[in-house]
Design a protein around this nucleic acid. Sequence first.
DNA 1: GTGAAAGCGCTAACAT
DNA 2: ATGTTAGCGCTTTCAC
Lengths: 357, 357
Amino acid sequence: MSVTMRDVALLAGVSNKTVSNVVNDHPHVHPTTRARVQQAIADLGYRPNLSARGLRSGRTGVIGLAVPELRQPYFAELADAVIAAAERRHLSVIIGQAGADREHEMAVLTRGLRQTDGLLFSPEHLGTEDRGLLGDVEYPLVLLGERIFGGPSDHVTMHNVEGARAAVEHLLGLGRRRIAVVGAHPDRRTGQLRPSDLRVQGYREALDSAGVPQERRLERAVAPWHPENGADAMRELLDSGLEFDGVLALNDSLGIGVLRALGKAGRRVPDDVAVIGFDNIADGRFTTPSLSSVDPGRDEIAETAVAMLVERIESGSGAPRAPRLHKAAFHIVARESTGGHDEEPLRHGATGEPAEG
Amino acid sequence: MSVTMRDVALLAGVSNKTVSNVVNDHPHVHPTTRARVQQAIADLGYRPNLSARGLRSGRTGVIGLAVPELRQPYFAELADAVIAAAERRHLSVIIGQAGADREHEMAVLTRGLRQTDGLLFSPEHLGTEDRGLLGDVEYPLVLLGERIFGGPSDHVTMHNVEGARAAVEHLLGLGRRRIAVVGAHPDRRTGQLRPSDLRVQGYREALDSAGVPQERRLERAVAPWHPENGADAMRELLDSGLEFDGVLALNDSLGIGVLRALGKAGRRVPDDVAVIGFDNIADGRFTTPSLSSVDPGRDEIAETAVAMLVERIESGSGAPRAPRLHKAAFHIVARESTGGHDEEPLRHGATGEPAEG
DNA sequence: GTGAAAGCGCTAACAT
DNA sequence: ATGTTAGCGCTTTCAC
């Protein structure tokens, strides 16, 4: 029924091996032979059976990406970038959503994603205490995010501390002194390296360097990082009667909720309260006012993570090199919510009245 | 190096076949034998080689999902739902982004996604004129969206005409009579069945039924459907001096841009202009004001599409049944942008001050 | 530069 | 209820 390599070989009058050489771009194939084989491939519409190739070679050409939830804009944008980076290397990407609970994440980590050569894993529940699990992982693995540091795996992450610090310095530079932070983790166990803890650390460092006193009641706990929870936290802060003139939202989803709660409460942004988020998701450009943010280098993260994973896959378990850590470059994007002027909107296509036709 | 079925069979003192039966949950295995085999599997940490299974059985257990761009919130939410629906059936999902251009989509359609048993395909560029291509497709295929109607493929889509019509009726019910539509296709060739054309049709039908005259200049062309382009179109409409008191944005991304442009121009929503979008993406709940929308039944679309694809896969080419069409149920979600009161925000987790510890 | 043969790990068909 | 055999389509030796 389907065309096999053997059919191509017969039509081209060569052996299996030669067809394989042509398909895999091996050198040492006579140009004439190559052309004849390619013609036969085209004539028959031959396409290699990837299961057979996978069985024989031990490689599937597929990598896995495990994220908590694809519907969170940050992860959708990350997945977009990972798929693009993988495609450049002729790899496909299977996406798994593991954020439901801890068990789900452990299952993904121990078993990997089916049918893949390696895994990019962005955990939400697993933490440093699960580091031991990583030692047992037998497939190529690159971690995204920072919940599990110091393990035996490659690691690609962002400048959480420095980014948050720069964001607060941006607010301080606007003359704000009573700066709240929204998104701290409700359970502040020590030794955890959650993004929230690292970003709170950057927040505190910035205040300390500027000689601005810290105030614990301005650090608001929120989990998970969804807009509704950001809005709730902001309402609670408003109700508390505490004064504040700046807010660091620990990600943009929270920031969008914060903007909304402020707007509904009649606080003007940025005049009364300046707000900055984190992640620079696309949505932040179209809120009213538009949301300043820390751009964490999403494309660099995706590209580096895929490159590292490919290296691990290609080196096999042969040359066990030391685990690497890469932190992508970040920068502050000042939009209206911190008094920046609106970016000139890029025109991505046609607008106007439709042409009748 | 890795554990094979043979190793398990030897340890359990049974044959390959029995191990296979256990692994695949076949009936007719003695409970005692089954237990012994399962113990051996656990002891050795055996995991089936899916490439081998795929080669032998002709099934990979992986389906493909091709969307224009994952970073568009609608497609991210759709992919989320598709992955969840596939997981319930123990299938994995490879995601491909094909929206770059027409050639890319044709390549995906003719070749499928590698290593998959079938494809869910949501085209952005291919249209009815490419229907012929579908006849040549030899793998199980389910189309999402409505660009290619009347072909030989199964099809899952939404009530574009009816949804848009209901949205406009909602605006008419508020007493609005000068209703603009943002997102018509710039090139209005006839015979096209793009979402934009269908939604514009619903818009016109609603006006006609209410005896409100159509006005072509209130139909604004925008492509692609990104917020910046929605904002541009709204600015142009404002600059044109035309009067209007209602806007149907043909999707929520456009709607978000429309809200922003109206806000910047000092128009109050919904007092001066009522706005409704389409797709009911999560972002619309947190704009200021929140965005009313048409909920197109995303989960139903995903679930139905996966179910149809699985049927096609399992029936093989044996029983070529007639192509099916499924339209998911829709409903109007009235939020602030059409005078609805804000939904009570759902509390999805903890907020408050972090516990020190 | 090309061919012949072996075998990757599994399941389907048939046998018992 | 379990065993035996064959072979899916490819790549990888190893010849020549």
